[in-house]
Design a protein around this nucleic acid. Sequence first.
DNA 1: CAGAAACTAGACCGATCAGTCTAGTTTCAT
DNA 2: ATGAAACTAGACTGATCGGTCTAGTTTCTG
Lengths: 200, 200
Amino acid sequence: MTKTARKSPEEKLLLAARRLFCRAGIHATGITRILEEAGVARGSLYMHYGSKENLLKAVLDTEANMWFHWFDQDLPALKCSSQERILALFDLLEKWFAKEDFFGCIFVNAVAEHEKDSGWVRDMAGTYRDQIIDRLKALVVESGARDPDVVIQKLGLIIEGAIITAMVTQSSQAAHIARLAAEDVLRCTECSPSLGKEST
Amino acid sequence: MTKTARKSPEEKLLLAARRLFCRAGIHATGITRILEEAGVARGSLYMHYGSKENLLKAVLDTEANMWFHWFDQDLPALKCSSQERILALFDLLEKWFAKEDFFGCIFVNAVAEHEKDSGWVRDMAGTYRDQIIDRLKALVVESGARDPDVVIQKLGLIIEGAIITAMVTQSSQAAHIARLAAEDVLRCTECSPSLGKEST
DNA sequence: CAGAAACTAGACCGATCAGTCTAGTTTCAT
DNA sequence: ATGAAACTAGACTGATCGGTCTAGTTTCTG
């Protein structure tokens, strides 16, 4: 169980930063605390990342890659229908939430603590979000849903709700509820030709 | 349109703090910036609130009261079924999201930027969350849903998802999607005697 | 009108922050 | 074995933070 043993200072910094940024907040986490948690010298941080901001960017990249891995590797490996693959995403979420060091999504946290009107955090989060939504879209379209765009938006909303609920309640239960809600959405979409039309 | 005219320094501080905490983040917002935005002297802040922390608490109180007002005043005033009242909540959310100074939910933001394991922010957010869920529960039970607890959790998740999506996308569209998803959940709950039972 | 309370403007303080720099140590390729 | 690069430990800097304090002005109340 030597968790941070045999890792390069670069990797130890990345892991410590991810954990602390999520657990205590980005602004509330000082460089010094990251260095202590990582067991790495001050100079190494600035040699590898140059600034706290760049370190945060690296953490965001890492988290995005987790999502990409889910969509590009884990889900396609399943031998099941594309609809079941969509639902399997919530099982991946459940595993994520259940990790002892899960303290919310760094993207949500980063957006929450930074300027909402503009800025690189917002841009970066938006770009990665779009890339994730695209992958979700491929799954939904493949499943032959009646109104893919609406389904995607509903599912995206449920996923984000699950993340926040899991962060607030500190329980992986949210993923299970989210899966049930997603099942409702998918069932309604394939069963009802036209829903109510309160246009406004 | 004199927005901050004829208001007491206390109220001007509260409004400025709420806006800035949501728009730029709590830690990223300095006392001085709040004072500038509010047009109020430094001493007045400490006379009325004593600390930045207490000011944040007051902002959280205000936001909680908005939710209580929705559940205790606005929704009961509607002459419609309790199920339609549940859905009307999403119309209130839509109005909220559409405000020019909507930049996310201060509760979510506050939890996101503070220690997740403990602390007064977490406690306060949890307490208010429970009180809001209780009100939602009353509505759901009144609507005669088959499995109220699950429905409540699904709806809570959808509501939180809507808030985050609205924050990230800066669009009130999320409320509309959330309403559609909520309709799916309610429809499935009342139509299907027993859903799939993947009990984990 | 008079006194108290609320309020303003801004100087000021100690703490802490991100980031720099120096000096010495370890690691590693050749 | 040796030199370069990576790394450590920690002192240091300038800026900024939350919060205090003083002095003078406005507003409210009786």
